[in-house]
Nucleic acid binder design. Structure first.
Lengths: 187, 187
DNA sequence: ACCTGAACACCGTTCAAGT
DNA sequence: ACCTGAACACCGTTCAAGT
């Protein structure tokens, strides 16, 4: 599974320094912070950063890895306590909240979450599982796809970033996705 | 209403040239095309472009003005033929389709549509009207806001841009917003 | 009042030289 | 194998000089 041919000790150390600096700066200044600033704070040359993380998305995915792993684990852990429908609801709310951690992350979350790291794989697999379970239980429409999940998470995060709504509206927006804007029984 | 103190003839001409060039380039290369390229194609200096359109959003709003006006007019025209719910559906589909006209426009459509030009005002007023009518007819939930409309249009356009879905999925995504992902009667 | 474009700032990305 | 940072490219934005 580990296709990385083991980094040299100094390279491994630099990789860690870059990740720590990136996490801090993404939080402080958003996901579009200049990469030179990340390299500077990490105390490495800009070339070293590019060698380890060829794209900004790769760096974002790496800093998200642990958060995604724990989100997926938490979702599985609460599974027995929730109905299939509620499990999907909480999954979407948590993922939207997480995506709102870094300013400017929303637009690329779709790419970031499909990057192949263990965390990305875990959170994606968990979403597929919840969707399937909801459909088998007859709670979720058959024509809904996992792409629709990503779309709504992206949407909510962008809405929050644009300051057209606040984090407190995540629940409302997820609710619209789940139940629709139409009054029940009106069609 | 017209707060513009009438441009000098040459300035007016340049403004038109900029708009024509911008429309063409936005269509060819997306809403993030270099502004210098727009100025070059228009045959004016970059300073002239900035003088007329201080921000990219202002330029986007200006090129969208006529499209927004006709979208709003079309919506009012078909109004008698549709139920309040269907009127909202078509409004959202048309707006999402329009926002997908220029690549990279989606993320800023929220800002562009609130810019105060006649077109922006018209399409916004029409959306508010349809929402109110839907709610008064008992077809739309009372807790839905016009911000939710913008959020879903943004979401759909971003989904399309990220190539996670195609324009043919607009109908599906609007349908989810209207009716929700939950199976009816499951709650 | 308006136009121009050089000048400056800023950031992304590569790559030759060095360890 | 890895690191560094100068160098280059590109784009946004301003503003002094000119009409």
């Amino acid at each position: 599974m580990s296709d990385a041919p083991a980094l040299r000790a100094d390279a491994q150390k630099n990789r860690e320094l870059i990740l720590v600096a990136a996490e801090a700066l993404f939080l402080e200044k958003g996901a579009d912070v200049p990469l030179e600033e990340v390299a500077k704070r990490a105390g490495v040359g800009i070339g070293t950063l590019y060698r380890r993380f060829p794209t900004r998305e790769a760096l974002l995915a790496a800093t998200s890895n642990e958060r995604f792993l724990s989100l997926a684990a938490a979702s599985r852990a609460r599974d027995p306590d929730l109905t299939p429908g509620d499990a999907v609801r909480v999954y979407l709310e948590e993922l939207a909240r997480d995506t709102s951690t870094y300013q400017s992350l929303a637009a690329s979350i779709g790419t970031v979450i499909e990057c192949g790291t263990p965390g990305c794989n875990a959170i994606t697999a968990e979403g597929h599982r919840l969707l399937r379970r909801g459909q088998e239980a007859g709670a979720i429409r058959r024509d809904v796809t996992y792409e629709d999940f990503i779309y709504v998470v992206t949407a909510i995060s962008i809405a929050i970033e644009n300051d057209r709504s606040s984090k407190s509206r995540i629940r409302h927006l997820v609710d619209l996705f789940l139940n629709g804007i139409s009054v029940k029984g009106s069609d």
